[in-house]
Amino acid sequence: MKVVSLVGARPQFIKAFPVSRALADRHEEVLVHTGQHYSEAMSEVFFEELDIPTPEYNLGVGSGTHGQQTGEMVTRFGELIEREEPDTIVVYGDTNSTLAGALVTAKTDAPLAHVEAGLRSHNDAMPEETNRILTDHVSDLLFAPTERGVTNLETEGIENVHLTGDVMYDAILWARTRAADHSTVLDEHDLTAGEYVLTTVHRAGNTDDRERLAAIMRALGAADREVVLPIHPRTADCLDTYGLRETVEEQLTVIEPQGYLDFVRLLDGAERVATDSGGVQKEAFFLDTPCVTLREETEWVETVDAGWNTLVGADEEAIEHELQREITLPEKPELYGDGDAAERMVALLEETDG
């Protein structure tokens, strides 16, 4: 079976690498990077960390408006698919790359498999919500990480839905042990496990709004313990534009973006995390790290319902409260499978191909 896997951003490579490892022994995989997000973090070292080959193709699309970016991806990926003639195409998550891959595949005879299907934030203003809904509705195989994802898809009348568990759980089980053995990031930044707050802020809804970003940074700066910020390039640019960079660097421990294993080690060692990232919310849950989410909604509602994640948006007072209150966590339910999601997905792809 020849599988083309399409990814466009670093988190998608993390989702894809367990599937790539499961495919490797029995099938041919062509890994394609759209170039939607390019950074030095997407260098050879990143792929060495994950123990996977670098992508066979990089479409080099780069940044642009949503329409420009998606349109260019459709053109370039469509040409590639005509050459490669895969048996199956796999897309991940909810980026513009995901939607472009779905649109191209819908016009071919190859079945489309969507990993992380069925997520819904119910915020139609989020581009990611549009991407995931449209992708789900043209997919032939839908791999839902949670029961709620299955229910969402059934409610929308979508068939061929499979509850597989979450590939990011597969990834984090592997990475947690490897990071503990190999990462020196805590020593490099003089951090003690359990005595710092980790934060990530990168969503355009927060960074592109000066008042929201300023409120978040003030609240983080008021925390009663050290706050570590691996700074996203977009966030750095916005802080510079708004004249906030100097103050933030005085109040927070601002460090460069981290590789996957170092970030997992930071998240595993944090007393709690404040983030606007969907993936980090879920990784925090996997690693038993309480989460404060800097958004008004989340696609990972199970973590909120379980009492391990709190939504605070950009409300300065609410953020301060959640960063400083004593945490009493309930027993953690098993929500995302048992770490074998990738193997289940490959077995389902084989059934379809057969």
Rank of each mutant, 00 (worst) to 15 (best):
M1T: 14
V3P: 12
V3G: 07
S5F: 06
P11D: 11
Q12N: 13
F13C: 07
I14G: 10
F17D: 01
S20I: 10
R21W: 03
H27G: 02
T34P: 13
H37K: 00
M42L: 14
S43I: 05
F47T: 12
D51Q: 04
Y57E: 10
L59T: 03
L59R: 07
S63L: 08
G64V: 02
G67C: 07
Q68T: 12
M73W: 00
F77L: 11
G78H: 00
E82S: 04
D87G: 15
I89N: 01
I89K: 08
S97G: 02
T98G: 08
L99P: 00
G101E: 09
G101F: 04
T105L: 04
T108G: 06
A110H: 05
L119A: 06
S121P: 08
A125Q: 13
P127E: 06
E129L: 02
I133H: 09
L134D: 09
V138Y: 09
L141C: 11
A144F: 01
P145N: 02
R148I: 00
N152I: 00
E159M: 13
V161Y: 14
V167S: 01
V167K: 13
I172E: 06
L173R: 08
T177E: 15
A179N: 10
A180Y: 11
S183E: 07
L191M: 04
V197G: 09
L198W: 03
T199A: 14
T200E: 04
H202V: 12
D208S: 02
A215P: 12
I216A: 05
M217Q: 06
A219Q: 10
V228W: 08
I231H: 11
P233I: 05
P233A: 10
A236N: 12
D237H: 03
L239A: 03
L239N: 11
L244F: 09
T247A: 15
T247V: 04
V248L: 09
E250A: 12
V254Y: 10
E256A: 14
V264K: 01
V264C: 11
R265H: 15
D268T: 06
R272A: 04
V273F: 10
A274M: 08
T275Q: 00
D276G: 08
S277Q: 00
Q281A: 01
E283P: 04
F285E: 07
F285G: 02
L287P: 00
L287N: 05
T289G: 10
V292L: 03
E297S: 15
T298V: 09
V301R: 13
V304K: 05
D305H: 03
V312W: 10
H321C: 06
E322N: 15
L323F: 09
L323I: 06
Q324A: 15
R325Y: 10
P333I: 03
G339Y: 00
R344V: 13
L349P: 08
T352P: 07
D353A: 14
G354T: 11
